[in-house]
Write a protein that binds this DNA or RNA. Structure first.
Lengths: 353, 353
DNA sequence: TTGTAAGCGTTATCAG
DNA sequence: CTGATAACGCTTACAA
């Protein structure tokens, strides 16, 4: 536990003042010192195994080179790619990333933000997508800490820049695909409405569907964005009376996965009896049973772009106000197919075209 | 960007010395100050929105309350559960977690460790499982920073405690299962041998299989622990001459997934033509096509246990030397079935029982 | 119970 | 080009 070596130790060995050591070891200021001196200092540092204390530096210069990322749950497969994207741009610039999970609870989110604020992160990237106003975040923001939202639709008076996929386009793509396959009885399985992504997807669905003739549509809200919740919701749908939907659009892939499980359990086949389309194109969506047709979001890029905007804000001083929506695409796999013939005749509302 | 409020600001408002503020706001020392004074201080702090500077504190007390986690790739689904487990025990104790990805490269791993050392983490949890000796880690360790390995078999002279699943038992379980199903021609698809987990699994396989009559076994090493590498390796196996294995044990689930894909592409059916068993029971293994039979590792527990050991070491001062192997279980799903009858007669070596 | 003062390891500023 | 000094925000002997 030999007391850590400090800049003073290096100075002593190199027979210079610690200020000189500081200058010699710093890229920015290295040219302020004589070449030979600098080399002597570097040599001494190497010899002693000197590792600068980033906290002392941060305290002095008031910049921690640290970014806090807040996610609901790293185990949700959409977040690791986003985090990777963020790291990909931050790491090379010398930033380190602090990740906090919130489990989707507002109070632990507040605690996480507070904890990161204590650590004096230079900025926040929030991937929680909750719509509730966050007290501690606003406070941090007021103190000049930059914030970028990710995977979150910017609200009207959005105080923070945001980066997300084009949810409306994604829903439109899915819808077109299903319509082309002849589906007329559609179910939208929406996520909780206090998540902006799922909310905006649901809104997109409603407005795209409105005014189309020959369509029977319904929207059911699932309590959580998990396979379990999706499964439970679909169970309820499948065991309720009346004609079943021939296709379901899920709020995200996890929900879609739950639907797949439920459909299987009920002895129905996907896509023969019912088509399913997801959202996000999470890792392994192609390996599901059947491989999931879903809207592909460029998650890594979304993370990277968020990081870039954050950095730009930090460097300018001026917080940006951008709202970026990255393009999405539909990747058609095996969970969607032609609408089942047997149902065509049994429409009970809406005129068939 | 109003200059952050400091302890002095609070002191001024509460009309006490900053030392008193420090004492009042600190759980440990709060009882050293008069109740009324403490309340006044808390009130002032609240009023000003005071958030203590953790770095200044860390600098003073020489404890950062920060733990560095080093993983190869957060996008590999086995790591998020481990990280969650770690957080689950660290968070409540006030620790914050710094996660660094290495992409499996030794040099970026070194850089990550150095970066975390600069930040003066109180400990490391390494989930990289590489066997290469890490220079900067040894240096940190020599300076009294605690280290715990996770998902890594302890080598003979292991300098650090480690927590992992019982790999040998896992392989034994898989093997027994396949033997019971009548498989006699077995392929082990091992991961790279510089990962201790995959190495010890491969060794377990070899030694368990040795001396068993009536078995034809082979071991093929795949270059990486990814679905792509697994797929490529299996492609090679399937397009080589000679009788095919009736069952393959994969070094981990990702490799198994690659095998599944390859098998499908080659027009073979799993498990009718070939059985596949994985290792790890990663999230969504049950949703693969077919659902994957695999060895379940208690990943969250593994992470949690690692964190506990780390904390114990930090609190004692004395680094532990424990090597923990958590029990594993086989979860049988649909990717394994009876050995195909058609092959029974065509064994070309080893006596059928 | 509270105040004083020193110091944690850096870097910025100002002299030399 | 280099050295001295102060300051970043906090905790902790020690003193009152």
């Amino acid at each position: 536990m030999s007391k850590r070596v400090t800049i003073d130790d290096v100075a002593r060995l190199a027979k210079v003042h610690k200020a000189t050591v500081s200058r010699a070891l710093n890229e920015q200021t290295a040219d302020m010192v004589h070449g030979a001196t600098a080399e002597r200092v570097r040599q001494a540092a190497r010899e002693l195994g000197y590792v600068p204390n980033a906290m002392a530096r941060a305290l002095r210069v008031n910049v921690s080179m640290t970014i806090g990322i807040v996610v609901p749950d790293l185990m949700n497969p959409i977040f690791p790619p986003i985090v990777r994207g963020i790291e990909r741009v931050l790491q090379p610039r010398g930033y380190t990333v602090l990740v906090a999970n919130t489990d989707g609870h507002a109070d632990v989110e507040a605690a996480a933000i507070e904890s990161l604020t204590r650590r004096r992160v230079d900025g926040f990237i929030l991937a929680t997508g909750r719509l509730d106003d966050e007290q501690s975040l606003a406070a941090a923001h007021a103190d000049g800490i930059h914030v970028v939202m990710v995977n979150r639709e910017a609200a009207a008076g959005a105080p923070y820049p945001s980066v997300s996929g084009d949810n409306t386009a994604g829903v439109a793509l899915s819808l077109d695909h299903l319509l082309e396959l002849g589906h007329t009885r559609l179910l939208y399985l929406a996520g909780p409405q206090n998540y902006s992504t799922t909310r905006s997807r649901a809104i997109a669905f409603q407005s795209l569907v409105r005014g189309r003739n020959g369509l029977t549509t319904s929207v059911v809200e699932v309590g959580e964005l998990t396979a379990e919740a999706g499964s439970a919701a679909m169970d309820r749908v499948l065991s309720s009376p009346g004609p079943l939907p021939t296709a379901v659009l899920a709020g995200n892939d996890l929900v879609a996965l739950g639907v797949l499980r439920s459909v299987r359990r009920h002895g129905l086949r996907c896509p023969e009896d019912i088509s399913v389309v997801g959202f996000n194109d999470m890792t392994f969506a192609e390996d599901f049973c059947p491989p999931l047709t879903t809207v592909h979001l460029p998650l890594v890029d979304i993370g990277a772009e968020a990081a870039r905007i954050l950095l730009a804000g930090i460097e300018d001083g001026e917080p940006r106000r951008s709202t970026v929506e990255l393009p999405v695409s539909l990747v058609v796999r095996k969970s969607t197919g032609p609408a089942p013939r047997s149902h065509v005749g049994s429409l009970e509302q809406g005129a068939a075209e």
